[in-house]
């Protein structure tokens, strides 16, 4: 572990080899996000079947924290219901922003993964790096009846 807590092995590994780093040609929900401070971009796709996230993918360009955060999002929220996903992402953003939160819907492994980002409470200027993909995913979920071909 590096002496700067946020650059832990988990984050470095996910940033170098992100999971589900691809676009979906067709999907039920998609949204774009960007960070005006640095110009970082993210695009998130999901296929919702029977109210469950059946396949979540992302692509984009960004810092280690933003790429790792998106990668971990796809791992944690995949196969979760839309309602649970919204609850988890809200609490993830609260946790990063040093507000009261709970991860009651997560198992221990998932909790540990998300808690990696609690170090960001010490770096408020970087919180957007971690939350960008989560708020973008929220925007995707909130696009009711979205069902078109995503941009590739």
């Amino acid at each position: 572990m590096s002496e700067i807590g946020i650059y832990q092995q988990t984050i470095l590994e996910h940033s170098k080899n992100p999971l589900n780093f691809k676009s979906l040609k067709t999907c039920t929900h998609q949204a774009n996000g960007n960070n005006p401070l640095c110009g970082d971009k993210v695009e998130i796709f999901t296929n919702i079947k029977n109210d469950i996230n059946d396949e979540i993918c992302f692509q984009g360009a960004g810092c280690a924290i933003s790429i790792a955060s998106a990668s971990i999002l796809t791992k944690v929220l995949n196969k979760k219901s839309v309602q649970d996903s919204k609850n988890i992402l809200e609490n993830f953003i609260k946790m990063v922003e040093n507000k009261e939160f709970n991860f009651d819907l997560l198992n221990n492994e998932e909790k540990t993964l998300l808690m990696t980002f609690s170090e960001l409470q010490k770096f408020p200027m970087r919180s957007k790096c971690a939350t960008m993909s989560w708020s973008t995913f929220n925007a995707a979920l909130n696009r009711d009846n979205y069902n078109t071909e995503a941009k590739v």
Binding site: E3, I4, I6, D40, A64, R126, C129
Partner: peptide, 13 residues
């Protein structure tokens, strides 16, 4: 292969 904001955070330390 290192993003400018990761660099800035490490520099800050």
């Amino acid at each position: 292969n290192i993003h400018s904001h990761d660099v800035s955070t490490i520099f800050d330390q």
